[in-house]
């Protein structure tokens, strides 16, 4: 059996590895599908829904990060409907918590911000929720600011799957979901945290950051983690 299959993306025929997801197939062929929760080396969860695509012959949208590409598939990754929905999803995220870029360490280097800019989000049509959320400064090297968190769970996955410490998880449910450190401890009081900082590097926004950086100064080194996971065998 051939190790490569052929699919069509936005009309163009491309080749990809058998077993790859549609997202991976697109990326390997230089086509960009938006996404915030997926990351090379971490198990894909399909949480942010920004990577949804249209597949000919299927009457519903599919999440490209968790859907395997199949021989002969015809995928549309940019369409008016998809872009409209992606904008809505980003606006929902921006309204959910307190994403005030002007005073954020990740301003200018934030995946949420970049994606919003790229997709043309200029205003948020929903009411801002302004939840009262805390900032955890107890760890000697890092900061957790819940106001910036988009619940993408990259930190949860990297800590559990790559570092093996499983310090983070999501507590509560629905709109009340919150990142929790162990049994709702402050980060500084964590028993299992190794201070490796992988969670900080994979965080797409300024929710997790290194101490000592001022506004606009926090530039993440996501690639460092990707290299690690590539060595490990992909984290799947």
């Amino acid at each position: 059996m051939d190790s490569k299959i052929t699919i069509r993306i936005d009309g163009e025929l491309v080749k990809t590895d058998r077993g790859a997801s549609i997202f991976e197939a697109a990326k390997a062929n230089g086509k960009h599908i938006p996404g915030l929760c997926n990351m090379k080396g971490l198990k894909p969860v399909g949480a942010c829904r920004l990577c949804m695509v249209e597949v000919a012959g299927v009457n519903r949208l599919l999440p490209s990060c968790t859907t395997p590409a199949q021989e002969g598939m015809s995928v549309t990754i940019r369409s008016a409907r998809l872009d409209a929905y992606r904008k809505q999803a980003l606006e929902l995220l921006l309204s959910e918590r307190n994403h005030v870029c002007a005073v954020c360490v990740s301003n200018g280097h934030c995946e949420l911000q970049s994606l919003a800019t790229a997709l043309g989000v200029t205003n948020v049509r929903y009411g801002y929720r302004y939840p009262k959320l805390g900032v955890d400064l107890s760890h000697p090297r890092y900061v957790l600011d819940h106001n910036r968190c988009i619940l993408c769970t990259r930190c949860v996955r990297v800590c559990a799957e790559v570092e093996g410490a499983h310090v983070w998880d999501i507590a509560g449910r629905g709109i009340h979901s919150m990142l929790t450190c162990e049994m709702n401890r402050t980060w500084g009081a964590s028993r299992n945290c190794t201070s490796c900082g992988k969670c900080v590097q994979v965080c797409p926004t300024g929710a997790l950051a290194e101490k000592g950086f001022a506004v606009e100064e926090m530039i993440k080194r996501t690639a460092s983690v990707e290299r690690l996971t590539a060595v490990r065998g992909g984290g799947r």
Partner: peptide, 21 residues
């Protein structure tokens, strides 16, 4: 549905909250 939402995906978690509002 808003209070039973698991909270994992954005449309349901935040969308239903905005709908409720």
């Amino acid at each position: 549905t808003h209070s039973e939402s698991c909270g994992k995906c954005v449309p349901c978690r935040v969308g239903l909250d905005q709908m409720l509002a």
